[in-house]
Amino acid sequence: MNIEPLAQFELKTFIPIRIGPVDISLTNSSISMILATVLALFLLFVMTRRLRIIPHAAQSMIEVFYNFIVNMVYETIGTKGEKIIPFIFSLFLFILFGNLLGLFPYTFTFTSHLSVVGTMALLGLGLSTIIGIYHQGWRWLRVFFPAGIPVLLAPIIVPIEIISFLSKPFSLTVRLVMNMVVGHIMLDVIAAFVVALGLAGFVPLFFAGVLIIFEAGIALLQAYIYTILTCIYLSESFESHH
């Protein structure tokens, strides 16, 4: 029996669509993204219907998530970060639903693809640059040459700081993609053993069950880590460097 743990990450085109040189085909990845977005919006809509001062179970559940993000933004950026709470909350829900949806059979984990996660990280980098220039003007460029460093060291410090700034989307992307890919490869390999071992397959089945629960935890933790690190990177744009 062939075990191909990487086959699950292959893109499959369902409906080919092309506009000029741009390929916007509906693939398993884009369908999963649409599904995650629709599901998140639908749940938010259903759970926030008939809002009460003393929340019902569904409302309090969504409030827990929302407060969690609001607190995260307040703790990392402060009250001036209020305007980006919708962005951070959407980012968190998109990644969380992407990670969790990928755990179901026949679905596709789009958070395991560099192109998807990388684009989100670049969005964060672009936003942090825009916010920095908006808040501090061109003084924001001081982040590449912090105060108190001798001018003689500028030729060394400035390239390092620029690479350090540009490396943030890479580290964000690598972390999430690595976690998702490794988790799904492990699940695939163990699941293949369940079939291959016949009657003794219940042993790997037990492990696969435990691993699924573990992966669900990882899905939540990674969505949290991705969002809090984006907050930390964005917080540097709000701080002034004099």
Partner: peptide
């Protein structure tokens, strides 16, 4: 991943 990100960048 921070160390790796720096190297990749």
């Amino acid at each position: 991943s921070d160390l790796l990100g720096g190297l990749i960048a």
